[in-house]
Design a protein around this nucleic acid. Structure first.
Length: 260
DNA sequence: ATAATATGGTGAT
DNA sequence: TCACCCTATTATC
């Protein structure tokens, strides 16, 4: 679930539920008591997503959430049901209740810390204020493989392990291509396709990288081209798996030749 | 029914 | 390199 699209979708969903209202903030699970107490009763002034990070703003402070691999948002209308599972934070407005379970990161940031966080994140393909030049500078100067660079959130943010394999396959780029061997034209295509796919992901609330597919049916199913698939949908070659940054990457050696 | 696996990132070792 | 966070889905009995 949580690649960049998940967080932007959460921001869109939750803004009308929470922003502009005094929130009851609690930690049913008990592992965020201090932070909850600090924010309880204050007005939520905005919700912003940066890459895979979400910030609930309360004037000069912000609740910083990173879902990690397991984290999930759940929301419901009031009156709210009993917390289910390990609810680290419960945010309650007059109308809605948002529960956050299992986040990797859950902390209160002051302004300098918020600036530091935003500063260390590369341009987010889903933000209109993103500057792709920053990503181009990093990639074009790096000897690291593009499959690693696309997953490096300080280079470009929002892309996760599924989108990585899918974008590189769609643009016929081998993940082992060094960043400094990527032409400006290829970079522009990678960026544009990332924006395109993650926007679809926000709308569908699911990763869909196959053209023409509108709705998510199963976990992978027809939604993706090569991620976790045995054969290439374009040429039927066997899909090769390789370990990159400790994560499984998928590659079709026919469609994505190593041109180094 | 129970077990295994992962769309992520941090901090310790 | 590994433990952790502790959900949701899929695979295996």
């Amino acid at each position: 679930m949580p690649e960049g699209h998940t967080l932007h979708r959460a921001a869109l969903d939750q803004r009308p539920m929470l922003v502009g209202q005094h929130l009851d903030v609690s930690s049913p699970q008990g592992r965020f008591m201090e932070g909850a107490e600090r924010l309880d009763g204050r007005i939520c002034t905005g919700i912003e997503a940066y890459g895979k990070h979400l910030l609930y703003c309360f004037d000069a402070e912000a609740l910083h959430i990173h879902l990690g691999l397991f984290g999930v948002f759940k929301f419901q209308k009031c009156p709210a049901a009993e917390p289910k599972g390990a609810v680290r934070v419960r945010l309650m407005s007059k109308s809605h209740c948002v529960d956050i379970n299992g986040p990797n990161c859950c902390e209160v940031l002051d302004m300098p810390a918020r600036a530091a966080l935003i500063g260390r994140i590369g341009p987010d393909v889903l933000r209109s204020d993103a500057d792709p030049e920053r990503a181009w500078v990093r990639i074009s100067k790096s000897k690291a493989p593009i499959g690693l660079l696309l997953m490096d959130q300080s280079v470009i943010s929002g892309i996760g392990n599924i989108y990585r394999s899918e974008i590189l396959w769609r643009q016929k780029v081998s993940p082992v291509t060094p960043g400094n061997a990527i032409s400006r034209e290829i970079f522009d295509r990678l960026w544009a396709d990332s924006v395109h796919l993650l926007k679809i992901g926000v709308k569908a609330n699911s990763i869909i990288t196959v053209d023409g597919v509108k709705k998510a049916r199963s976990r992978y199913g027809e939604r993706v081209n090569i991620f976790n698939k045995p054969h290439c949908p374009a040429c039927a070659s066997q899909i090769r798996r390789l370990e990159m940054a400790g994560r499984r990457a998928f590659i079709c050696d026919t469609c994505q030749p190593d041109v180094r």
